[in-house]
Design a protein around this nucleic acid. Structure first.
Length: 240
DNA sequence: GTCCTGTCCC
DNA sequence: GGGACGGGAC
């Protein structure tokens, strides 16, 4: 199906943020958790619903294993059991240990030491770790290191695709660039925008049966119009 | 049963 | 660039 495409502007992107913020309210993600917990969450949430990540984090907390040193000290089988709700037990335990060792070796085991560094240097450091890809690296950079980098995930891609701003197959980097070129380089804005997009995708712009009737972006969204066009064709086509 | 969602591996 | 990886919601 052809997707109507339009060029995003800074004003257009700002309006999307404003509408989402007005509708969903301030998200204020991860305000009360430790920085290390954010790093662990960034790994655990790979291809995984956040609810399952929360279970795994609660298990780690209950086991007093939610510090990098405690995590490194856990027997591997124990670590695997604790994070089981987050799935991918063949890979995620090692990824967590890798991250904990990196933090110890490069940042004196203190996540706050990530702050104030050079963004591109830190991003390359993180991407070099086995099990850390662009989304995980950028989530850590934005929410732990407080670097002004826009985090792209499946929800971001879905919303911008449906809005008609991006092609469905747009690359991570292209969508990130598109957003960053049209937003002020502001850590708080990037943090809040990403959180709002996730909330919006979970509650309104769902993968199947999106609630367009109550969507604050419906007015500027291409999705319903395209859907309507497809439905019309399906209704009309068999008739003749 | 089917869907959801990042990274690695080939 | 297509498959494997896993648990939980629905």
């Amino acid at each position: 199906m052809r997707i109507a495409s339009r060029k995003i502007t800074a004003a257009g992107l700002r309006e999307i943020f404003t509408r989402l913020h007005a509708y969903h309210g301030p998200q204020n993600w991860w305000p009360h958790e430790t920085l290390w917990e954010i790093m662990v969450g960034a790994i655990l949430t790979q291809n995984t619903a956040w609810r399952n990540v929360e279970r795994a984090l609660a298990n780690l907390k209950r086991a007093h294993a939610l510090t990098p040193a405690a995590l490194r000290a856990l027997p591997r089988a124990r670590l695997t059991e604790l994070i089981r709700p987050a799935g991918f037990t063949a890979s995620k335990p090692q990824r967590l240990v890798t991250l904990a060792e990196f933090l110890r070796d490069a940042y004196a085991d203190e996540p706050a030491n990530l702050r104030g560094g050079a963004l591109e240097t830190q991003r390359a450091q993180l991407l070099a770790l086995h099990g850390v890809g662009p989304e995980t690296a950028d989530a850590i950079l934005l929410y732990v290191a407080r670097q002004p980098i826009f985090v792209v995930d499946a929800y971001t891609r879905r919303i911008f695709t449906r809005l008609g701003i991006a092609a469905a197959n747009i690359s991570y980097h292209a969508l990130q660039t598109l957003c960053m070129e049209n937003l002020a380089s502001d850590v708080e804005l990037f943090q809040e925008f990403h959180a709002l997009l996730d909330t919006h995708a979970k509650l309104i712009c769902t993968k199947r049966a999106p609630r367009c009737d109550r969507c604050p972006l419906a007015q500027q969204c291409a999705y319903q119009k395209n859907l309507r066009a497809v439905q019309d064709r399906e209704r009309v086509a068999p008739r003749r």
